Amino acid sequence: MTGVRVDAWIWAVRVTKTRTAATDACKAGHVRVNGERAKPATPVAPGDEVRVRVAGSERTLRVAQLLAKRVGAPQAQAAYVDLTPAAPPRVERPATVTRDRGAGRPTKRERRDLERLRGRDLDS
């Protein structure tokens, strides 16, 4: 095989759940092959870099093996090299505190509890 359609390859290596989803991602401009925007029929070859944006995150994959049909997960993982950088650690933020509309003004005790929840402990 000299090349495989990029939408078929993305589906075969289990980046998207369906071939239709892979085709739609290509049409929407969420797939790039070697830096260029890819149409669904764009061929990929071993060594090509494929960038796919799915579910709000971008994955960068280097083609190691061509697959035209969907295979098991271990075989699919062997067909690419994942170049995606590690996600930054999540920053923990205090929970947002809201009061019910019409609940009136908070009492002094409720206000202190709210400040403590927000991380602004005024007592110390």
Rank of each mutant, 00 (worst) to 15 (best):
V63C: 08
E110T: 13
A87F: 00
V15H: 00
G47I: 04
R14L: 11
G56I: 03
L61T: 10
A55R: 15
A28C: 00
D100N: 08
T96A: 13
A103Q: 13
G119P: 04
R5A: 07
R99M: 14
N34C: 03
T60Y: 03
T16F: 14
V52S: 06
R111K: 08
V6Q: 01
T60M: 10
D123A: 14
R111C: 01
R101M: 07
D48K: 02
D7K: 04
S124N: 06
T60E: 08
E58K: 04
A64T: 10
C26R: 05
A28M: 02
C26K: 05
R51W: 05
A73P: 11
Q77V: 06
S124H: 11
W11Y: 15
R70C: 01
T60S: 10
K69I: 07
D121M: 01
A22W: 03
T84L: 02
R51G: 03
A86E: 14
D123W: 12
T2F: 08
R90Q: 11
R70N: 06
G56V: 05
S57G: 02
A38P: 05
N34E: 11
L67A: 10
R51C: 11
G29W: 12
A86F: 01
G104C: 08
V6G: 04
P43R: 10
T16L: 12
Q75R: 15
A73F: 07
L66T: 01
T60G: 03
G102D: 11
W9C: 06
